[in-house]
Design a protein around this nucleic acid. Structure first.
Length: 329
DNA sequence: AAGTCGGGGGG
DNA sequence: CCCCCAGACTT
């Protein structure tokens, strides 16, 4: 099975920037960016990130606001904060390098069992597993496992099967990546392309589309929000979201109504869907007569310096489109 | 074990 | 509308 898989991988693997070399730092960045994110979506972020932070030291010294800006739109922003935390720890405890084993890697913030295994196997050729959603899907089908894969018992069973399949350090890097690539290109969630699968002869799944088994979905609550976009002297008020919780550390608009409103313009309503909640937003641009004592920024500043989550982007776009605030004078 | 944490592409 | 993605962390 290893031979078929690796042969398939040699021919069909995608050329990805982080496959060009085995720099542990670059592998690390790519794996963090790829968490719960499609490869194509993170590619432009990856190139810009490596240019700005080419090594552990530059990342450890990163400015927090610039770091958030580099991550703007990618989501799961704790990932980039943990990157910096880990980089600092690498400077202080590991001579400015990433630790050299899965066991040590997993102790760093933001690096869990999957990412530790991916870095160790790809960068160090350590013969360890890297079990992500692709591998879970591939193995649940290979062995026709009908148990709920979110149960820890099922995960352990799959981990055991994966561990027993590991090919040794000579092939581990390609093997782990090949499993994931197979899951991404052939053994896909819906309508798997079994006719093109190199493992079709040994796959035990009778109904692959029904695997892996996951628990029934839970509803997503909807939260209605009034957004007040304070504008004064061609500048927009932004508030740093300091509270712990959703989008904390990023910048957003105010949700309180200001005192002296000169004029107000209603924007198109917009509903933003997060994983576990929906924000149904109604936004108004409110022109106020004074911006002392509050944080107001030009559109140019906002676009180049402040990390705005995608949930607010439609409002910014409409402000720009309708020229409600001066932009690029 | 269940919730939290983003965003987007594709059926 | 739905799914889930090279998951980790908190409760």
């Amino acid at each position: 099975m290893i031979r078929e898989l690796l042969s398939w991988y040699d021919v069909n693997k995608r050329e990805l920037p982080f496959r060009k070399d085995k720099d542990p730092y670059r592998i690390w960045i790519s794996e963090i960016m790829a968490q719960q994110t499609r490869i194509e979506a993170m590619l432009p972020y990856y190139d810009r990130f490596i240019k700005k932070y080419p090594d552990v030291k530059s990342l450890a010294n990163a400015d927090d606001e610039e770091l958030h800006k580099m991550w703007q739109g990618l989501g799961y922003y704790s990932r980039c904060r943990n990157l910096k935390k880990s980089a600092i720890e690498c400077m202080e405890r590991y001579d400015g390098k990433l630790p050299g084993s899965k066991e040590e890697l997993v102790k760093l913030p933001g690096i869990g069992p999957y990412t530790a295994g991916a870095i160790a196997s790809i960068a160090y050729d350590e013969n360890v597993s890297a079990i992500d959603g692709n591998v879970i899907r591939v193995f649940s089908r290979l062995y026709d496992i009908h148990e709920d894969v979110t149960l820890s018992s099922t995960k352990k069973k799959i981990e055991k099967l994966v561990n027993e399949s590991l090919p040794g350090s000579e092939y581990i890097s390609d093997y782990n990546q090949a499993l994931m690539e197979l899951g991404a290109l052939i053994c896909i969630p819906q309508n798997p392309r079994c006719d093109k699968c190199p493992l079709q002869n040994e796959c035990e799944a009778k109904d692959p589309s029904s695997l892996p088994v996951t628990p029934p979905k839970k509803g997503r609550p909807c939260l209605e929000k009034q957004i007040f976009i304070w504008v004064c002297d061609e500048k927009i008020h932004l508030k740093k979201r300091e509270e712990k919780g959703l989008l904390h550390g990023l910048y957003g608009f105010d949700e309180t109504k200001p005192e002296n409103i000169i004029k107000e313009i209603r924007l198109n309503p917009y509903s933003h869907i997060f994983s576990h909640v929906t924000w149904k937003m109604d936004a108004k641009v409110v022109y106020v007569d004074s911006c002392v004592d509050t944080c107001f920024y030009t559109l140019d500043q906002i676009v180049e310096k402040y990390a705005i989550p995608s949930a607010f982007k439609p409002f910014l776009d409409e402000i720009i489109d309708r020229k409600l605030v001066k932009y690029k004078p």
